[in-house]
Structure formats: structure tokens, C-alpha cells
């Protein structure tokens, strides 16, 4: 992978490390423990990212927020990716009227909605919670994977080895799983990486608007929203969650770009 991609990988690895290992060192109680005597305390040795308006440890909240961001990112990508791949595969492989309905109608309907508005509407309708947030993001996310998968399948199913497999008596299932999927999946890996960035960003946006995970669960977006009011008195309240969002999105985007180049068949030197 190229240099920029490696930087992305490093950022992502760091983020995962923080989300997985961080909670082992910082007990969950510190996320919600308040100490109003010390609210807005700037960063110090005891609290490297300072305390917020309620005297809660910002570092603890950022670390547990990383966990939430990753959970949302991974779940959204996994679910919308799986749904999108399955639907795109069926549409591309079977073609005909199935394809005409799926890609000619359903795709276009979903693509006609501004994604984040649809997500806001979904959460507003179902009520804010982690699972509703994920559901809303999946509802807008799957179309991208499905469209890409369909296009890939249309290409790969015409390859000679698919005809050869069919001439050897392979059934549809085997052709799809063994011959088409592994040869069609590459651009979707890139898409998934970019999708992680998109999901983390969307989670932050929705939480910022108060449509994310309800408090007191720490979310970077919600932290930013809370900090907005105290921008003058506590600079560290906006800086750290803001930097984390930017870093996470940057990291996954760089990985996506790196993967795109790395997986390019024209790029022979690995």
C-alpha cells in the first residue's frame, strides 16, 4: 500500500486500539462521574483532556466515544454492505425484470432522497437510540453497495471462467459464491472503508443534532453539541471530540484511497 494509505492504516489501528484497550484502563464510571466543583477545568496531568461543564473527564468520554463510533461504523458497514451485496448480486446475476425493478426503480427511489435527511426522518420517527441510529444509517447506506455490486456482477458474470464453470455443471449458488463474488468484491472493500468514514461522520452529525444515542452515553457528535454552548469558557470541550471525528474520518478515507490503489490490478508491484 502507498505511503498515505499506510498513514491511514496507522490512524485506524490507533483508533481501534484506543477503543478496545482504553476502557481497560479507564473504568466506565468515570464517563458519567460528575464533579461540579471542577467544571471546565482545562487539561492537566490528572485529566489530560480536562473536565466538561458537569465536571466529567473528557478523556474518558472521548475513549468511550471512540468505542461507540467504531461500533456504529462497523455495524452499519457490515449490515448495509451485506444487504447491498446480496441485493446487487441478485439484480446483476439474474437480470431481467428483477433487475429492472431493483436497479431501475428501488435504487433510484433511494438515491433520490438526500441521505442524511432520510436518516433524520427515520430517527425522528422511531425515536433516538443506538439501534434506530444504526437502522437509519443502514437504510441509506445499502444502495451504494448494491449499485456497485450490481455493476461488478454484470461485468464478472460475462468472464469466460464463469461460462467454463457453468459448462462443468456448477449451479447458480456455486457460481455466485465461488466465481463471481471473489472476483467482484474488490471495489466494495474500498467502498466499505470509505463507508466507515461516512458512517462515523453521519453518527457524529446525527448526535450533534440530538438524534443520536441519547445522553449520558458519550458520543463525539453529542459532546460537540454540548460544548457548543460553552465555546468561550472551555476550548478543550470542542477541540478533542472534534479532532477525534476528523482523525477517524481522515484515517478511514486514507485507508480507502490506499486500498483502491493497492487492489488495482493494473498496479502490478505489490
Amino acid at each position: 500500500m502507498n505511503f498515505v494509505g499506510k498513514i491511514g492504516l496507522f490512524i485506524v489501528a490507533l483508533l481501534v486500539l484506543v477503543a478496545v484497550i482504553g476502557p481497560l484502563f479507564i473504568p466506565e464510571i468515570r464517563v458519567t462521574a460528575q464533579n461540579l466543583d471542577f467544571s471546565f477545568e482545562p487539561p492537566s496531568f490528572a485529566h489530560p483532556m480536562g473536565l466538561d461543564e458537569n465536571g466529567r473527564d473528557v478523556l474518558a468520554r472521548v475513549i468511550y466515544g471512540a468505542r461507540l463510533s467504531l461500533i456504529v461504523g462497523i455495524t452499519v458497514v457490515a449490515v448495509s454492505g451485506a444487504v447491498g451485496i446480496a441485493i446487487g448480486m441478485v439484480a446483476g446475476y439474474y437480470g431481467g425484470w428483477i433487475d429492472r425493478i431493483v436497479s431501475g426503480f428501488i435504487f433510484n427511489v433511494f438515491l433520490a432522497f438526500p441521505g442524511i435527511l432520510l436518516a433524520i426522518a427515520t430517527v425522528a420517527f422511531l425515536g433516538p437510540s443506538l439501534s434506530n441510529l444504526i437502522l437509519a444509517l443502514c437504510a441509506i447506506g445499502w444502495v451504494g453497495y448494491a449499485r456497485l455490486m450490481r455493476a461488478q456482477v454484470l461485468k464478472v458474470r460475462e468472464y469466460d471462467f464463469v461460462t467454463a464453470a457453468r459448462a462443468l455443471g456448477a449451479n447458480d449458488f456455486r457460481i455466485i459464491v465461488r466465481h463471481i463474488l471473489p472476483n467482484a468484491i474488490q471495489p466494495l472493500i474500498v467502498q466499505a472503508s470509505l463507508g466507515m468514514a461516512g458512517a462515523i461522520m453521519a453518527e457524529a452529525s446525527l448526535s450533534f443534532l440530538g438524534l443520536g444515542v441519547p445522553p449520558p452515553t458519550p458520543s463525539w457528535g453529542a459532546m460537540l453539541n454540548d460544548a457548543r454552548t460553552y465555546f468561550a469558557s472551555g476550548w478543550h470541550l470542542t477541540l478533542f471530540p472534534g479532532v477525534m471525528i476528523a482523525l477517524a474520518v481522515l484515517g478511514f478515507n486514507l485507508v480507502g484511497d490506499g486500498l483502491r490503489e493497492w487492489l488495482d490490478p493494473k498496479q502490478k508491484a505489490r
Binding site: D160, F161, T163, A164, A165, R178, P182, N183
Partner: peptide, 10 residues
């Protein structure tokens, strides 16, 4: 088939 370069799954 005609083209052995593309008739095998890579």
C-alpha cells in the same frame, strides 16, 4: 474454451 488466459478463476 478459446482463451485459456480468461477461462480459469484467478
Amino acid at each position: 474454451f478459446q482463451d485459456p488466459m480468461t477461462s480459469l478463476n484467478p
